[in-house]
Design a binder for these strands. Structure first.
Lengths: 340, 340
DNA sequence: TTGAAAGCGTTACCAG
DNA sequence: CTGGTAACGCTTTCAA
């Protein structure tokens, strides 16, 4: 394990020059640089990260703080996002450090990242309604990118988000076009920013077609499989059952499908279903004709882009914020058909 | 942001003494220690991690390297494991660094962790048949704990694993006791160590009851939902359909259930299903009578224990290996009944 | 284009 | 019990 000192001794050059040659500084002659690079390769020199970090004051890492409650319910989505982000970090020489913390410790986690310089920047996960975390991060001087959006702080933060409102509006429109009038919304927890946007899109479409949103057809909870099944059954057995369901996640949609078939109904015939699909690898909804008609947006891609954004942000002094608004695709599958 | 120098100046003590007081060395007088601690609190002193890492040569981080292919199919399980591990790391002052790498880059990832001291130890994820990664890690001198087991290297590695063979043997026994004779195995990819163990348990139970394992009833693939559904349908429509399914993951089991109902059969009546349940938070299978009869083992708990093991390993010079063998619970749900 | 030397903020050895 | 001082391995300023 050679270090810079030994390497420079072997080359009969100063540490300074060797360091400069290796880090691509312009003022070293091409000849010396080649010699240095070659020798470094031969001796298997790898700069010590801790030393570099100490010297530069940069940790070359990005932090992801995941509150337990959020993690619990969005687990698969997170990992997919993280996988995308991790890929990008790797190619840029950044490490990814992940902290899964109890909900009430999230602030401390951020403070520690900032004060002990564990990371040069962070990704803000799972923005909530009235989220104040961006204030804390600004105050800590910790650069960040929001995965999702904080309503009301769009101009004061960098973020990447799916156009959830529009996706759900389009999905609702499709159902209405198919003749559905009673459309249920099986939404995620509406303490989450994205869930509210989705409901807005749904309500907007209904109202644009003269349909009055019916509270009895809307529900909001953690997006588990049983939640989908139970809600579907409850609604299908009610006085005025819906003929279609708009669901916030594949997991719950699978539950909804189960509920529908438990009620002796056929999905795509008696009852239509559209779900949002995050394109998770273990829940493929592809093929010629996907099982579920869906609004699809790759959360892995979002991770890739979020990572690129935070890296850029960390490296630039510029104070401007960057946004990226992704449009979901509306993909026709087997789970929708004309209203009976 | 005070540093040690300023803190010691404020106290009119040497850096040495202050450092010792803060790090709990015994040779500091109680009085001085109190004074130091108090002043540190007042000034909000927090030791710089990078400096400490450089000085001690320890990175105070544990690495998790996740090959893409493995990630893709086991995504939810990984994050649950990681959540457990992360919790433990946090309480012990360790960081968790995650690398999601292309399959053919896994070796490089380990080498880099070792040579650049990115982490003091790693968790080896998703052991495969004829896995050689432990050799590499030994050679790199990087302490590690296997999540799962490497058949043939049990004595030469530290590991934590569920007793998969036994779990599947018991599950098969239960089905046999219920009168089932044609039991299908919907297994994970049998390039994975755990999948082979599961099949062994299944075959052992069959043979112990004089039933000949039938290759036509066994399948092995990535554990997606459609895989479960398609395989179930194919088998149920075959010449000699099974009356029961033993499934390797909740996700595929949900697919199996869908397949069964698409065939017009009732789960728990016409066809029985037992699945392995990793106790993922977004796929709850609990309640009074769980939907699926299952062999259950918390993968989050495995993460917690694995983290404890690697931390201990990193901190001790001892060369002995540690093992932990978890027994899965066999839990009766609604998806099993007597053979028709 | 190159080099000497001063940091970066700790920990750890050796004296006293 | 306390302090001086030398690492730790790199980057960066200042001079040449």
């Amino acid at each position: 394990m050679v270090n810079l000192k030994e390497l420079s001794k072997a080359l009969e050059l100063s540490q300074t020059t060797v360091s400069r040659a290796l880090n691509g500084y312009p003022e070293v002659s091409a000849k010396t640089r080649d010699r240095v690079v070659e020798m470094a390769r031969q001796l298997g020199y790898e700069p010590n990260l801790q030393a570099r970090r100490l010297a530069t004051g940069r940790s070359m890492a990005i932090g992801h703080v995941i509150p337990r409650s959020v993690h619990d319910m969005m687990n698969p989505i997170f990992l997919e996002f993280i996988a995308g982000a991790g890929q990008t970090y790797a190619t840029h020489g950044y490490d990814m450090i992940i902290s899964v913390v109890e909900d009430n410790n999230e602030e401390d986690a951020f403070r520690e990242i900032a004060s002990r310089k564990k990371a040069d920047g962070v990704i803000l996960q799972g923005p909530r309604i009235n989220d104040r975390r961006h204030d804390l991060l600004d105050q800590l001087g910790l650069p960040f990118v929001v995965h999702g959006r904080i309503t009301g702080a769009e101009e004061r933060t960098s973020w990447i988000d799916v156009n959830n409102r529009r996706a759900f509006e389009r999905a609702t429109n499709l159902l209405i076009d198919l003749g559905h009038k009673r459309i249920a919304l099986i939404n995620g927890l509406e303490t989450m920013d994205f869930a509210v946007r989705r409901r807005t899109g749904y309500e907007t479409a209904l109202q644009a077609h003269g349909l009055e949103p019916d509270q009895k057809l809307m529900s909001s909870a953690d997006m588990t499989e049983p939640y989908g099944a139970e809600t579907a059954i409850r609604l299908l057995k009610s006085q005025e059952p819906p003929t279609a369901f708009l669901v916030s996640s594949m997991i719950s949609a699978i539950g909804v499908a189960r509920g529908i078939s438990l009620c002796g109904l056929r999905i795509g015939k008696d009852v239509s279903v559209i779900t949002h699909d995050d394109a998770l690898s273990f829940l493929p909804n592809s093929g010629e004709v996907p099982i579920f008609t869906c609004t699809r947006s790759s959360v892995r891609y979002a991770g890739i882009r979020a990572a690129e954004m935070i890296i850029q942000k960390v490296n630039e002094e510029g104070d401007e914020h960057a946004y990226e608004h992704l449009e979901a695709e509306l993909i026709l599958g087997q789970s929708t058909g004309p209203a009976p």
